[in-house]
């Protein structure tokens, strides 16, 4: 099994650049006019969930669950064919 140092060697630079991309994306949203919508509210919840995942959940699970529809009944009909990436009630 790889050690923490092995994982850092493999993934630190890649994760560093992805982190910076998220920071720059949030700055970009701040800089531009208009309104945020449910997608960014879901994103903010996911960021918080990543920092403090519920007991028994990994960070990745917490992020995915923050960005999931938690309703349980089948929908009456499809109004769109695609998915947004965050639930519309975020």
């Amino acid at each position: 099994m790889p050690t923490k140092t092995d994982i850092l060697d493999l993934y630190f630079m890649d994760s560093r650049y992805k982190l910076l991309d998220i920071a720059a994306y949030l700055d970009r949203l701040d800089r531009h006019d208009g309104e945020l919508d449910f997608r960014q509210r879901g994103f903010d919840k996911a960021l918080a969930a990543m920092q403090a995942p519920p007991t028994g959940k990994s960070r990745a699970q917490a992020v995915l669950e923050a960005l999931s529809d938690h309703s349980t009944e089948p929908a009456d009909a499809a109004t769109i064919q695609f998915a947004f990436g965050a639930p519309q009630d975020s």
Partner: peptide, 13 residues
């Protein structure tokens, strides 16, 4: 299984 926000619910169904 469905995409993105629909995956969790769809997998359970």
């Amino acid at each position: 299984t469905p995409h993105l926000e629909d995956k969790l619910k769809g997998t359970r169904l």
